[in-house]
Amino acid sequence: MSTVLDTSTVERVEDKVGESMWSKAAYKFRRDRTGMMGLSVVAFYMLIALGVALGLWGTEWSDNNGQKWEGISSQYWFGTNILGQDIFERAIFSTKTAFEVGLVVAVISTLIGAILGALSGFFSNTWIDEIILWVMGVLDSIPFYLFVAAIAFALSGFSYSMHVAMIATFWTTTSRLVRGEVIKLKNFEFVEAARAVGVPQHIIIFRHILPNTFHILLVQSTIVFVGAIKSEVILSFLGLGVKDGVSWGLMIAESTLEVQAGEFANFYAASALLFILVMAFNMFSDALQDALDPKKVSA
C-alpha cells in the first residue's frame, strides 16, 4: 500500500496540470517570474485606466489651478507644467488614452489579420490568396509615418484616423503568421474528417482551423498593443496622433519646450510611466511566447 503512495508522489508535470496545450502553457507561465511580474504591472495600469474611464480619478487633467512649474508637493505629486496643470493627473489620464489606443488597435488588427490570414492560407495558391498577399505587400511597402500622415489628412477631422492608420499597417504581420499556420493545419486529419462529413467550408475555416491559431493571435496582439502605444507617442509628437484628451505623447511633445528651460517634471513623468508599461508588456509578451510555443527554447 505504501509503495503505491510513494510512486504517486513522483508525478510528472502532465499528471499535475493535464494534457491540454493551454493548461500546460498556464502552468509554464505561472512559473515564469518575469512574466508574472510583467502581468501584474500591466494589470495595475489597467486598473488605473479603468478608474479614469469610470471617472474615479484623473478628472482634473485639464484644469490649470496651479502656478507655472510648481515643484513636487502634496497637492501636485509630480508638480505642474508650463500652464500650471497637475502633471500627475495628466499622466494618470494618459494611461487611459494609452490603453484605449492599444486595445482598439490590437483587437481590430488581430481580427482582420486572423480572418484574412485564414482565408489566404486556406485558399493558398488561388486568386483569393494572391489578392490578399498583394494587399499585404502594398501596405508593407508604404512608409509608416507617411501613410499615417496621409490617412490623417484623408480623414481630416476624424479623431480615430491614427487608429485607422495603425490598424491598416499592423494587421499584415498577424495575417502572414496565421496564413503560414493555416497552410500547415489544413492538411491535418481533422480538417479532412470535417470535409468528409460535409461541413461547409466557412465553418471549417473559422470554427475548425482558426481556433487552432489562437496562441499566435494572443501573442501577436500583445506585440501589436506595445507597438501601438509606442507609435502613439511619436505620432502625437508629430501632431498626427491623439486629438482630444491628453496622452504621454502629447505630454512629451509639450515638454520639449520645458526641457529647454530646464524643467523636466513633465518629461520624466510621461517617459517613466510609458517606459514601465512598455517594459512590463514586453516581459509579459515574452513569457507568453515561451509558454505557448512548444518549439521555442527559452533562454
Binding site: K230, V233, I234, G249, I252, F267, S271, L274, F275, V278
Partner: peptide
C-alpha cells in the same frame, strides 16, 4: 521599451 522620441530628447 524606451521610445525613440524619449531617447532623442
Amino acid at each position: 521599451s524606451v521610445s525613440f522620441l524619449i531617447v532623442i530628447i
